[in-house]
């Protein structure tokens, strides 16, 4: 009775939606004017980036021409080579790759473990501990900044990878995200695994984790993006040029005496390249990560 009526209700809703969508599509059959407006808006939004790209390709003194040229007169990749070697951006990219890679991997592991406990183990104090995890979302990094700096210094971790990585190895957001996904995995699977004599640990790694690839991908992309883009913490814990991450390496390049804007813009394009690739190819995951807290579901 129940399932039947639910199905028919669904069919009615779906049937009602289909013509509506067709109508909407017909209405949207683009008025050329609106299409043009959309392109124009896209160009305005992207203008700073396109202008940075154009600047990065300007050779010699063209960057200091007034009025500024929109298109470079000749395409010069010299700025990219110079940024990679002189800055040295190649080294900064390596540092950031190690830092962000380790944070991403670490968060995937710690969040999977914690989310597993919160979704598959019935234990006293579960609600309370989950609340404790969520409460860390209310504590902004800026408030723990000074003590964390003192802690990392006392560990002798200033100017090291552990100093960059360790404070970010756990994530309440990621735990929450994975828990929501784990809860959709049928309990029967856990029971079946237990009857088969599989340990909890094996159940987690051989069944839950492979089933949760979409949620893990969302967390991975989110973790990588946010650690790649970190600014304040790396600025504090890193002193030497060789240990700088891309963001602060580039920012400090700009504060040097002799400043070439075409060099800096080449650096900007290089450091956003990995995040742009992640964004364009992982758009769905990026959106899901960013809206996880905003949209019900």
């Amino acid at each position: 009775m129940m399932p039947a009526s639910a199905t028919s209700a669904y069919e009615v809703a779906a049937a009602g939606r289909r013509p509506a969508r067709a109508r909407a599509l017909r209405r949207a059959a683009p008025g050329a004017g609106l299409g043009l407006l959309m392109v124009l808006v896209a160009l305005i939004v992207l203008f700073p980036l396109l202008f940075a790209l154009s600047t990065s390709l300007k050779g010699g003194a063209e960057v200091n021409l007034y009025p500024p040229t929109l298109w470079p007169r000749s395409l010069d990749l010299g700025n990219y080579a110079a940024a990679l070697q002189q800055a040295p951006l190649a080294r900064f990219l390596l540092n950031s790759l190690i830092q962000s890679g380790a944070i991403t991997l670490g968060q995937l592991i710690t969040a999977s473990l914690a989310a597993f406990a919160f979704s598959f183990i019935e234990f006293p104090g579960r609600r309370w501990l989950f609340f404790l995890f969520l409460s860390t979302l209310m504590i902004p990094a800026e408030v723990t900044l000074i003590p964390n700096y003192l802690t990392v210094r006392s560990f002798g971790w200033l100017d090291t990878y552990p100093g960059l990585i360790a404070p970010y190895l756990a994530t309440a957001f990621g735990t929450f995200l994975l828990r929501q996904f784990f809860l959709t995995i049928p309990r029967e699977l856990a029971d079946a695994a237990r009857i088969d004599g599989a340990s909890r640990r094996r159940f987690l790694w051989t069944i839950v984790v492979p089933l949760s690839r979409p949620a893990l991908a969302t967390l991975a992309i989110y973790a990588f993006l946010s650690s790649w883009n970190q600014y304040l913490w790396p600025l504090l814990v890193i002193n030497s040029t060789e240990m700088r991450t891309v963001q602060i390496g580039l920012a400090l390049l700009q504060s040097q005496e002799i400043l070439s804007w075409s060099l800096v813009m080449a650096g900007v394009i290089l450091i956003i390249l990995p995040t742009v690739v992640l964004f364009v190819f992982g758009y769905r995951h990026v959106v899901r990560g960013l809206t996880a807290g905003a949209v019900k579901g």
């Binding site: 939004v45 883009n229 650096g267 995040t275």
Partner: peptide, 14 residues
């Protein structure tokens, strides 16, 4: 939504 891929440092430099 492209500026999601642009860090605050890159944006500030541009």
């Amino acid at each position: 939504s492209f500026t999601i891929a642009v860090s605050i440092a890159a944006a500030a430099l541009i």
